[in-house]
């Protein structure tokens, strides 16, 4: 469904991604692992075309989308949940969801406001409140719900567990597994190996913008030297 090949991205003069290539199949949940600053967020942004890669291709459903504007990528069915959350604090929860709304797609799960409120009951209680007084966990739920309003085929989740209370992280894991059952393809970036292991089928480890490992979690389990070298546990 998604194929990233030979991606090189820069931030200013810093070379962040270095010939990065990987694929994601339909219905798969893939975890991008690596330390802070390894290039996970830049990978997400390069797929979304929020960062335009200098070279390489991002192929989504057979089309090379490198160089597209972000809104075109979003309209093709890629939903992006940024690490910094970036909810619209001046808008109510309902209005935040409205911003993300797009037409339903045939080959992707369809979400409604009511369905999302059922998954995230906390949001439902405060639907007419503005985003200002929300906790980190609630903000994270709102960004995910907002992105799902676009009925994406592929969901990019950037560090969903970061800075969130453990109880909520547990809830988050269940939610992602539910998305998977609904048929959504998901790429998540994580530093928390345990969390990633629960929700994802496959792990891709990057370090300094270079791919170091691509395989199942059981394979990763068998090679603790890789884990220790590239992940901070």
């Amino acid at each position: 469904m998604l194929e990233v090949s030979g991606l090189n991205s820069f931030y200013g003069k810093a070379h962040i991604l270095n010939d990065l290539s990987f694929t994601v199949g339909r219905g798969e949940v893939v975890a991008l692992l690596g330390r802070n600053g390894a290039g996970k967020t830049t990978t997400m942004k390069s797929i979304m075309q929020l960062v335009h890669p200098k070279s390489g291709a991002v192929t989504f459903e057979g089309k090379d989308i490198a160089g597209y504007s972000a809104h075109r990528v979003a309209r093709m069915g890629i939903g992006y949940v940024p690490e910094e959350r970036r909810i619209f604090t001046d808008l109510t929860i309902l209005e935040n969801l409205e911003v993300g709304r797009q037409k339903p797609r045939e080959d992707a799960p369809v979400w409604t406001v009511d369905a999302l409120f059922e998954i995230f009951p906390n949001l439902s209680e405060r639907r007419n409140n503005r985003g200002k007084a929300m906790s980190g966990g609630e903000q994270q739920m709102l960004t995910i719900a907002r992105t799902l309003m676009g009925n994406p085929k592929l969901l990019l989740l950037d560090e969903p567990s970061e800075g969130i209370a453990p109880v909520i992280v547990e809830q988050m894991a269940k939610t992602i597994l539910r998305f998977k059952r609904e048929g959504l393809t998901v790429v998540i970036s994580e530093q928390n190996l345990h969390f990633a292991g629960i929700v994802a089928d496959r792990a891709i480890i990057i370090e300094s913008g270079v791919k170091k490992f691509d395989g199942s979690f059981s394979e990763l389990e068998k090679s603790p030297e890789i884990r220790d070298a590239y992940l901070s546990v």
Binding site: P166, V169, E170, A173, K174, L177, H194, G197, V199
Partner: peptide, 18 residues
């Protein structure tokens, strides 16, 4: 360990599901 460093016990319940 529980809130930050992680000890591997937190997701024991979920592991059973997965």
């Amino acid at each position: 360990q529980e809130v930050y460093l992680g000890g591997g016990t937190l997701y024991a319940k979920e592991d059973a599901h997965a």
